[in-house]
């Protein structure tokens, strides 16, 4: 019982600290000077580091989804619905979620470990004493970079996943490239793409925020760095699912209106 209340307390403490951290991010975001070149460098790193991974996972998801669904649709004689079905499910849910989870593993843990080791080796302190606000220089730029880059990565991942799906359709059903993508874009509505895109900004923010939070407040020692990287991924994944849940709820209301 005692350990339970302790765990509950640390849980709430963690959430509270994370909220303060997020609040501080927004406060520092609008304060001059903005670390523009560092922001661009982070954008480049975040995008460049993950694009191959996102492309690969997206491609495989496209293949697998199509292979798995095809027999069922064939049973109903509805194989011609394949492009629209795959298109909608990838763009609305699977693409954003898979890409975000992959990026949580790649970017989130990377940020956690990087900031964690900078904290442990006192690099963050060194920045602070040399007149540069490390929160602005390290945290704000990273969170912002991930928030901006993730939607792009997700759109890229969606495109590759659809291409993977097309390859299966082409091999098994002799569907031409033009027909496949015509059907995909016919099926997609603005109401499918907009919520998914808005959602992906939040996903990016969550990945950046948790990664930076865990790294920035890393405990001393190399074990602390490992723990920071690990818990960044775990917490981010949970947060992503919660965000997705809320996003679908909210989008559903607007969809009905």
């Amino acid at each position: 019982m005692n350990s339970f209340s302790f765990k509950l307390k640390t849980f709430f403490l963690e959430i509270g600290e994370l909220s303060l951290f997020a609040g501080r991010f927004f406060k520092e975001l609008f304060k001059r000077p903005f670390e523009y070149s560092e922001f661009l460098r982070q954008c480049y790193l975040v995008g460049n580091k993950s694009i191959v991974l996102v492309g690969l996972t997206g491609f495989i998801i496209g293949l697998v989804l199509t292979l798995q669904t095809r027999p069922t649709l064939a049973e109903f004689g509805a194989v011609s619905w394949m492009p629209s079905m795959v298109g909608i499910s990838i763009v609305r849910e699977i693409g954003p979620m898979i890409t975000a989870l992959v990026c949580a593993g790649k970017i989130g843990s990377g940020i956690g470990a990087e900031l964690g080791s900078m904290r442990v080796t006192e690099q963050i302190d060194a920045m602070e004493v040399s007149g540069t606000n490390p929160f602005k220089f390290l945290v704000v730029t990273r969170i912002l970079a991930v928030t901006m880059m993730l939607p792009i990565l997700i759109i890229f991942g969606d495109a590759i996943a659809l291409y993977g799906s097309y390859i299966i359709e082409n091999l098994k059903g002799n569907v031409s490239f033009q027909l496949f993508f015509n059907q995909v874009f016919d099926a997609l509505e603005f109401g499918d793409i907009l919520p998914a895109t808005i959602k992906s900004f939040f996903f990016g923010f969550a990945i950046g925020l948790v990664g930076c939070f865990k790294g920035y407040f890393c405990k001393k020692g190399t074990a602390g760095v490992g723990k920071a990287a690990n818990s960044a991924v775990v917490y981010t994944s949970i947060l992503l699912f919660i965000l997705d849940f809320i996003a679908v709820f909210v989008a559903d209301i607007f969809y009905e209106l």
Partner: peptide, 12 residues
């Protein structure tokens, strides 16, 4: 004030 950190703290 110059500050020399324990582990050098160079930005790696």
């Amino acid at each position: 004030i110059g500050f020399l950190f324990q582990g050098s703290a160079l930005y790696d």
